[in-house]
Design a protein around this nucleic acid. Sequence first.
DNA 1: ACATGTGAAGCGCTTCACAGCG
DNA 2: CGCTGTGAAGCGCTTCACATGT
Lengths: 221, 221
Amino acid sequence: MKQPVPKVAVPRLTVYLQCLEDLPHGVTRVSSEELAARAGVNSAKVRKDLSYLGSYGVRGVGYDAAHLRFQIRRELGLTREWPLVIVGVGNLGRALANYGGFAQRNFRVAGVFDDDPNKVGTRVGEHRVEPLAALAAAVVERGARIGVITTPAEAAQRVADLLAGAGVASILNFAPTVVRVPAHVQVRRVDFSTELQVLAFHLHQASMGPAGGDPSPDLPS
Amino acid sequence: MKQPVPKVAVPRLTVYLQCLEDLPHGVTRVSSEELAARAGVNSAKVRKDLSYLGSYGVRGVGYDAAHLRFQIRRELGLTREWPLVIVGVGNLGRALANYGGFAQRNFRVAGVFDDDPNKVGTRVGEHRVEPLAALAAAVVERGARIGVITTPAEAAQRVADLLAGAGVASILNFAPTVVRVPAHVQVRRVDFSTELQVLAFHLHQASMGPAGGDPSPDLPS
DNA sequence: ACATGTGAAGCGCTTCACAGCG
DNA sequence: CGCTGTGAAGCGCTTCACATGT
């Protein structure tokens, strides 16, 4: 029976969707085993995850790729368009504003904003950079429910307040800081430094060996 | 008793570390309650997480900020330097190569690489872009154990193979695809599109209301 | 008095293993 | 016969609540 999708399954569904779209041309059918191999997980997890959408597989055969793609898109809410605003025109803001993969998933960049008068008016991809003062009105008028913060850490909280005040319901925060928002606003944080530190931690652990003797006791400074 | 650090606690420790560094100047002491508020989690989790490092708090008082910072750095393996290479000089590669936050955590950009002859030789921050053909030798000579992929999706697998072949132990993959690597290589994937889709999913869920009647049945194409 | 450190309970996700069905 | 869909067991993390220590 169709159960609610667990939080942790959601990012995996996006991976399956990507894998389904990257299937060799002409392939119309896929087994949980094959999809699992492509997504880098085990097949039981794939089947469980897909079962949250409903029973769309055929026993003894597998899943119809096109149908499965549609069902995942539908469950994720990608059958409607999601306008978003990007705040902060550094290299990262530019990378995002130019990223072609958004349209494919029905995200649309509805505006790009920056504080710096030297950047306002310049073009980023197909967009003209607008001043921060225009942010709130633009969010309302263009129906953006998602805001992306690509500013330096110092500006992030102020931008988050602006976004929340303008009625944005979700924030994707790339600034290396934790922003406070009202309870009804959800935030996802993406921090390059955190990702590298997680990798470093595992390297560090591995280097100390499973037998765990610490060769350099690392005394406090 | 000092237990091993659970996987999920590692990214949180990096957040605590960031919060400790962002503490107002002059503050030398912090309680689990205060740190929790700054990190956006609850205080029991903070205490549990910190207990994996050892018993560095003082009952009835709190934690010494400087000492705690050092202990987190030590546990994460940030007391040594981690050279890394970046492959792919688009906006994202440039953003990363210029990101000042790395040095603060003892990460050092040891090389920036690209396939495109027009980019090779140009400067990115303090680095000169080198050709892909120079990647393997550079990884070995400069002792890089971490590789960052900021190429388009099409190039990601080839770059991952090059990195793994050169002896890199960890890969941070920003390309919107899943790369296959030998079992001894760990990969972390960061995908903007996935992050947005997760936000969209929650918005979508919320819009259907806790009472969950689906207003538009979303028939298959 | 007060905040840490921690057993233990609770919860959610993963994995197993096989029944169910084409 | 093969692959899906799924109860149930297993596992790890979160949260609680209080003993512990200063």
